[in-house]
Design a protein around this nucleic acid. Structure first.
Lengths: 337, 337
DNA sequence: CTGAAAGCGCTTACAG
DNA sequence: CTGAAAGCGCTTACAG
């Protein structure tokens, strides 16, 4: 087959099968009112000609186009791909295709991508944030919009994000359940809600367990391994005996593990360590392998996809939905038996 | 604006401007033979009505649809996103949109994705491999296909991949240029061409420099930190004094750094270490920060995009194009001054 | 059960 | 410089 050869159309199939285009259309779309022999002939013709229906034409007719647009600014793809997969799961990988666009952190570029996507008549839009913090609403659009990962600053918009309070709470509850009582918390950037919310959840859980307010042992810094190492030094030198460490990211946790190892502190016997992200390449191969709170991004994507579906079906209710996160247990908190 | 409200069409714009659809079309598309006053009126009408041309209709007319399909199986998105960005760079972020689909390692799913993409009349297809190894050709399609990262097993197809021999060579040359002479090599899985090619390139460079064949100090294993640690033990215990270590991935290199640190070996003074991938979260925050060969995936994406363009313009020549990789220097080979 | 006709939103020769 | 007409590939009432 030559690249330049234009593909078979419905009309070609109809001619080949000796029927009208209308009948060919009905036959191929499984409509009831078609003679079975006719249908068989049409299907055979379609097969022979390698017919692939032109979904642009179908889309023009006004129904769905079977496409969604996903705009991200996630230069590493850590968030975008799992979310994309969740959206595919929700919407059906064989009936929907996703345009993935990278706005590269530029609002103007985001705006122009939205126009391009609208020109392609996507059935809906998913805007993936870079951080958990609120982002600007892009306002009313002719198709439904779901904000994922970062919620919109307009409460009437539909948002699906991580429940970072719950992430922090679950991390703490996991440690408390193991009998740990003196828990320090190495957090990320103080300006990020992901950091402050996780601290809040963890602190609540600890206080709820009847333990003293852990706030003196909460440190904010950034999200890197370097900070994890530095903060661990501070904690160890601080004098308060601790038996567990919550790290607000796997990278921080990696740094913490390094310093603990160097100082001869046994993990988890002396100090248990839990991270957040379940970034497999970091968490699964550390020494010991890292217990961590998985953010369930694919699940987040599924929920976002479902919201889009419901909105398309008419349910335009806004509001924020939050995914709780899930503790993945490895040996940094529970020693191998 | 209500979600259900159907967007303005060209006809609406034409009516609003008091011209025919044909004239409106020409005015909006910047055609020369339109009175400037008329054009201004049409543009104003388009602005007022918030007109966004329906690119499905345009696509139906037979020209480009301004879309490409990218199929990956890269569950983490490490490869797909940089390659996607490169494709956008090459094709123009404001004129092309990419469908990103995850085949999840399933050939049947890949086939059905291709059909879906063809139904959307994409202008071209990019198939991103999971490993560098050759992959099956999907054969002739009505649109050009470029194989990225993993080359096609059909030499007539267009492939763009990493030049892993060159990656290995550059890693070795970097170390040789620093005066290192006894270089061990911790590679990945022996069955992966990425592993064997990098070994070949490094070995060639070392032999070309007049040094003895380093093959006794080449170890194959897997791509993990655990292997990096284990292999480093083996190398250190092997008795041959080495002054540099090539690691076939940043993960391996991280493991190597750990073990060297534990053994009290100074990096880079005693042993310089270089990795491959430039996976920033791993490489930039290790101790010391890791020198590594960047695979230039975005550049690979750009080249893939350009191949697609040329193919669309009629240049259907097949063949494999290889991206060399680029050494990113950090402190694991060059101490901070 | 089948088909002629209209129409989705656009662009492109072709007249005027 | 402007517009009527045809057509891209499909689906959907509507007749027959």
């Amino acid at each position: 087959m030559n690249h330049r050869h234009s593909p078979a159309s419905l009309a070609d199939v109809a001619v080949h099968a000796g029927v009208s285009a209308a009948t060919a259309s009905k036959a191929l779309n499984g409509r009831a009112d078609v003679n079975e022999a006719t249908r068989a002939r049409v299907e055979e013709a379609a097969r022979v000609l390698g017919y692939v229906p032109n979904s642009l034409a179908r889309g023009l007719l006004g129904a769905r186009t079977g496409t969604v647009g996903i705009i991200t600014s996630d230069l590493e793809g850590r968030f975008a791909i799992p979310i994309l997969m969740g959206v595919e799961d929700a919407l059906g990988i064989d009936r929907i295709l996703s345009f993935l666009c990278d706005a590269r952190g530029d609002e103007l570029r985001e705006d122009s991508l939205i126009v391009s996507l609208l020109a392609r008549r996507v059935d809906g839009l998913i805007l993936v944030g870079r951080q958990n913090d609120r982002r600007r609403s892009i306002g009313r659009l002719p198709v439904p919009v779901v904000y994922a990962y970062a919620e919109s600053d307009d409460p009437d918009d539909m948002s699906v994000t991580i429940d970072n309070v719950e992430v922090g709470r679950r991390a703490a509850q996991h440690l408390l359940g193991l009998g740990r009582r003196r828990i320090a918390h190495i957090s990320g950037e103080a300006g990020h809600s992901a950091a402050t919310d996780r601290v809040r959840g963890a602190t609540d859980a600890i206080v709820d367990a009847g333990l003293p307010d852990p706030s003196p042992n909460v440190l904010f810094g950034d999200w890197t391994e370097g900070w994890g190492r530095a903060a661990t030094e501070i904690v160890l030198d601080g004098g308060s005996e601790i038996d567990a460490l919550i790290c607000a990211s796997d990278q921080i946790a990696r740094g913490a593990l390094d310093t603990l190892h160097e100082r001869g502190v046994r993990v988890p016997q002396d100090i248990a360590v839990i991270g957040v992200d379940n970034w497999t390449s970091l968490a699964a191969h550390s020494r010991p392998p890292l217990t961590t709170v998985d953010m369930q991004l694919q699940q987040l994507g599924r929920v976002a996809g479902h919201r889009l579906q419901r909105a398309t079906a008419g349910d335009q209710r806004g509001g924020v939905e939050r995914i709780p996160g899930d503790v993945v247990i490895r040996e940094s908190t529970v020693p191998r038996r």
